[in-house]
Amino acid sequence: MTPAAPANLEALVAAELATPAEPGAAILAARQLAEDILARHRVGVEAVLFYGACRLDDDPAGLLDLYVLTSGHRAFHRRWLPALFNALLPPTVLHWRSDGLAGPIRAKVAVLTLRQFERRLRPASLDTTIWARFCQPSTLVHARDTTARHRVEQAVAQALTTAVLWAVRLGPPAATPMEYWRGLLAHTYSAELRVERGSRSERLLAASPSWYAPALILALARLGLATAADAEGRLRPGSPQNFTLSWATRRVCGKTLNVMRLVKAAFTFDGGPDYLTSKIARHSGVAIELTAWQRRHPVLAAPILLWRLRRDGAVR
């Protein structure tokens, strides 16, 4: 029997965030990492979200992407200086390792408060990074209680709403749902120092058609915009009311924030410089060999490395 279509955006999000009855190997690995994080920081953790390429490919051996949403910086970090850095420039990114039954499990763990997470998903936010991540499918591998779960579900629904607002604002008057998503992803990638090849957005959309098309329709309904499609499947949602925000401002802010976060990650991420160069090589095909001096002084080396990467087309 075909499952009933979700009644609204919140129902779609809740179903996607829920752990499947028979979770794959990657979700099981993410749950184990979440348990390890809770063992060390239980008091400070509200929720743990799993998203990204390893979730998409069900790959537990890769570097998993987790977002840890906390009740407060001091509650999680315990020391005032890391707490201050995360308050000023969230999220803090950590490298996390755990021993699994099939071998070591590794993750890139982004840490910020649940309140910071909620605020950065709103349309007025200058930071596009987080809502651009969480308009994509994800799994809630831990929630402290039903209140925390509900807040995360509402936050992800807001991420989708913000994404669709921008998709309509930046897109043509008429387009199919996938055309709107394709255009939006191109804009969000341009607002970051992206290293992925151009086919990345196509792979995301092709992997989850049952997510993107319904999510756009339900988000349009939530916004009070038209959702009827013509014979060719094209929508004419109309223009959002009182929506005069500037994408150019967000593009400049996004790239600036990306640079600042990369510098910060050089100190908080174990093996940060090597991780960044390996990611660049994996996604762009451009190999960068770091010298011993560059590993010891990542901040001083950053301007020259960034210039080389832009010259070679590894980042945009």
Rank of each mutant, 00 (worst) to 15 (best):
H297S: 04
G103R: 03
H142M: 00
M260C: 14
L205H: 09
A174G: 01
L112A: 13
S125G: 06
P209C: 08
H95C: 08
L114K: 05
H77V: 07
A39M: 01
L204D: 11
L290V: 03
E289A: 15
G62E: 04
A21G: 04
P214A: 14
T2N: 10
R79D: 06
S98A: 14
A34P: 00
W166V: 11
L223R: 05
A124E: 13
L223W: 09
A4Y: 01
L9T: 12
C135W: 06
R55K: 04
I37Q: 09
R133Q: 11
E179T: 09
L17S: 04
G24H: 01
I288Y: 14
R261T: 09
G198A: 11
A18M: 05
P3A: 12
S199M: 01
N8K: 11
E16A: 12
A301R: 10
T244G: 15
D145V: 03
D270W: 08
K108V: 13
R310W: 12
T146E: 15
A302P: 01
R133A: 11
L218H: 04
V48M: 02
Y275G: 00
A231T: 09
P20W: 00
P104D: 05
A266H: 00
V195L: 03
W293Q: 14
R119P: 03
E46I: 01
M1R: 10
E10N: 14
W131C: 00
M1I: 06
V168F: 06
A226I: 08
V259Y: 13
C135V: 08
R74A: 15
P303Q: 04
D127E: 10
A219N: 00
A167N: 13
F76P: 11
A314G: 09
T291D: 11
A26S: 12
P137V: 10
R282G: 12
R55F: 08
V259A: 15
T139K: 05
H297V: 01
A206K: 11
A110D: 03
E196D: 09
H297T: 05
A186N: 06
T128M: 06
A226Y: 09
V252G: 10
A7F: 14
A229K: 14
Y67L: 12
L220A: 11
V299E: 13
A301G: 11
L218Y: 04
E232A: 15
A87C: 07
H77D: 14
H187N: 02
Q136I: 03
R311S: 07
R151G: 03
D274S: 12
C253K: 02
A47V: 05
P82I: 09
A163I: 13
R222Y: 04
T256H: 11
R79F: 03
D58P: 02
L64C: 07
A29H: 01
T256F: 14
K108A: 13
L12P: 09
V299P: 12
S208L: 03
A301C: 10
T2P: 12
P303T: 02
L223Q: 07
V299T: 15
G24V: 06
V195E: 05
A87I: 00
L300A: 15
A143I: 07
S246C: 11
L49D: 02
L220H: 12
R236K: 14
R133P: 05
G254I: 07
H77C: 10
D59R: 04
R120F: 07
L235M: 15
G72M: 15
V109S: 09
V299K: 08
E192P: 00
A266D: 03
R250H: 08
A157I: 14
